[in-house]
């Protein structure tokens, strides 16, 4: 379990350079606040995330991992949605085998204009993690 924050959970976001990064940046530009313990690692495409990275994040102390997926906007093609779904499914299975609550991994399509949606996701995820891990 990560460092216990009084009111925020540690969330690692895998975000994509071309699609979801602009939305997360825009959230900052619009001063749409979300917990400061949300950290982003930029990757080219959400379907390139290895389950081992996600498990490593839990092992090291992150409370939750969020995949800001490309969805149908992926610049690398339409198969991204299915492949990202597959890797999330595979990771959920691995999490179950390690007794990690699968709900600590969330995924949502975040397009370049989805700033509000991203912030809403982060606030909701933070609440869930606080309730289940830090209550």
């Amino acid at each position: 379990m990560g460092t216990i924050h009084s009111n925020t959970a540690k969330i690692l976001v895998f975000s994509t350079e071309k699609i979801s990064d602009p939305a997360i940046d825009m959230a900052g530009l619009l001063k749409l606040h979300y917990p400061p313990t949300v950290y982003t690692i930029t990757i080219p495409c959400s379907s390139g995330i290895k389950p081992s990275w996600i498990l490593y994040a839990y092992e090291k102390g992150f409370d939750g991992v969020f995949i800001a997926a490309d969805g149908s906007d992926c610049v690398y093609g339409e198969s991204c949605t299915e492949k990202t779904g597959n890797l999330v499914g595979k990771t959920h299975e691995l999490m179950k085998s390690k007794n990690i609550d699968p709900a600590r991994l969330r995924m949502a399509a975040i397009c370049s204009v989805c700033s509000e949606s991203f912030v809403k996701q982060m606030r909701g995820f933070n609440e869930y993690l606080l309730k289940t891990l830090h209550a």
Binding site: T8, I24, D25, M26, A27, G28, L29, K31, L32, H33, Y34, P35, P36, T37, T40
Partner: peptide, 16 residues
């Protein structure tokens, strides 16, 4: 990126 993803996003929480 410590502007859009830190100072602006968390302008409500300087320590954070």
């Amino acid at each position: 990126n410590i502007r859009e993803q830190a100072s602006w996003a968390h302008s409500d929480n300087k320590m954070g």
